[in-house]
C-alpha cells in the first residue's frame, strides 16, 4: 500500500481491526526486509536521541552557533518549578522539551528530523513529557512513533513537508498533526479520531509562512516548536473529547497544499519576507553574516 490518503488508512485500520501504527510497521517490514524486532529497535534508538535532545537544553542553557538564540528551554524549565504557570505543568514541560530540541538543533547538536529538523521539537517534546508522566511505557511510545510516521507519509505524499515548497505550515503544521494523531491513538482513540486530530491540528496551522530571520533555523522556528507542542496536545484532547474536524483531514491537507502553492517565494524559506524583513530581522541577519546580503 502507499500512504497518500488518510481516509484509506483509516478504512484499512478499521477493516483489519488494527492500529495505524501496526499498518505502518507491516509496510516497513515488507519494504525493508527487516524483522519487526529490528525495526522497533532502530526506532527505539532514535527515541533515545530524541530524549537526549529534549532534556539537554532544559537542564543547562544551550545556545545556537550564531548566538542569536538559546536558553529558552532552560528559562521555561526554571519557571515551571515555581508552580505559578497558567498551563498545567506537564503541558509546560512538553513546551520546554520542544524548545530544547530546536536549541540543540541550532547549536549543530544531534536531533531526529520529525519530519524535518526545523520542526524536530514538537513530537519529542510531547512524547518525552508523556514518558515522564508515567502513563505510557517507552515501548508504547516507540510504537506510537509509527502512527506519527504513517500520518507524516500521507501529508508528505499528498502535499509537502518542506518549508521551501509549502511554507512553515508544511513543517510545523505537519509535525503538529503527526503528533496530535499519534497521541490520540496512544490514548485509546479510534482511527477515525486520529483523523480528526490531524484535521484539527493542521487547520490551526494553515497559512503559517516560513520567514526565518537570516534564513536560519532559529527565529521564529524555535518558539514555534515550543508553542505547537501545546497545540498538538490540545488538538489530541479535542479529538478524544469527540470534537470532529468538519472539513475532513484529507481535504485540510489538500488545502494546505493549495495555500503553499499560493504563497509568494519571499515567504517560503528564502529569509526575505515576513519576520526576516522586519528592521530587527534584517539587523540580526547583518550581525550574523557580517555584511549586507543582497536580496534576490
Amino acid at each position: 500500500m502507499s500512504f497518500t490518503h488518510l481516509h484509506e488508512l483509516i478504512r484499512m485500520a478499521d477493516e483489519k481491526q488494527t492500529s495505524i501504527a501496526n499498518l505502518m510497521l507491516e509496510v516497513e517490514i515488507e519494504q525493508s526486509l527487516h524483522t519487526e524486532k529490528e525495526i522497533l529497535e532502530r526506532m527505539n534508538r532514535q527515541f533515545f536521541v530524541m530524549e537526549e535532545a529534549a532534556r539537554k537544553g532544559v537542564e543547562t542553557p544551550v545556545y545556537s552557533r550564531t548566538g542569536l538564540t538559546g536558553g529558552d528551554a532552560h528559562r521555561v524549565g526554571a519557571y515551571l518549578k515555581r508552580g505559578t504557570s497558567f498551563l498545567a505543568p506537564q503541558t509546560l514541560q512538553a513546551m520546554s522539551f520542544a524548545l530544547s530540541v530546536n536549541e540543540v538543533n541550532a547549536g549543530m547538536g544531534r536531533i531526529v528530523a520529525t519530519p524535518t529538523a526545523g520542526s524536530a521539537g514538537i513530537l519529542p517534546g510531547v512524547f518525552i513529557s508523556l514518558l515522564d508522566s508515567g502513563r505510557y511505557s517507552r515501548e508504547d511510545l516507540v510504537r506510537a512513533l509509527f502512527t506519527a510516521a504513517a500520518l507524516g507519509l500521507v501529508i508528505a505524499n499528498s502535499a509537502s513537508i518542506s518549508g521551501a515548497a509549502g511554507g512553515c505550515q508544511a513543517e510545523i503544521g505537519s509535525a503538529t498533526a503527526m503528533t496530535a494523531g499519534a497521541i490520540v491513538e496512544l490514548g485509546g482513540g479510534t482511527p477515525t479520531q486520529v483523523g480528526h486530530a490531524v484535521g484539527l491540528a493542521l487547520k490551526n496551522s494553515l497559512g503559517l509562512v516560513c520567514d526565518p530571520v537570516g534564513g536560519l533555523v532559529e527565529i521564529p522556528c524555535i518558539i514555534r516548536n515550543g508553542l505547537h507542542a501545546v497545540t498538538a496536545l490540545a488538538a489530541a484532547d479535542m479529538a478524544l473529547a469527540g470534537v470532529k474536524s468538519v472539513i475532513p483531514a484529507d481535504e485540510v491537507i489538500q488545502a494546505m497544499y493549495a495555500i503553499g502553492n499560493a504563497m509568494p517565494e519571499s515567504l517560503r524559506e528564502t529569509g526575505l519576507g515576513g519576520l526576516a524583513a522586519t528592521p530587527t530581522g534584517k539587523a540580526l541577519r547583518e550581525r550574523v553574516f557580517g555584511k549586507k546580503v543582497e536580496t534576490e
Binding site: Q46, M108, A117, G118, A148, G152
Partner: peptide
Amino acid sequence: KYQSAFEMIGPVMVGPSSSHTA
C-alpha cells in the same frame, strides 16, 4: 514518493537543517 517510516521519523542528524546540513 516517501515510503519509509524512517523518512518521517529520521534521519538522526546534527542540525540545523535537514536540507542544508543533513
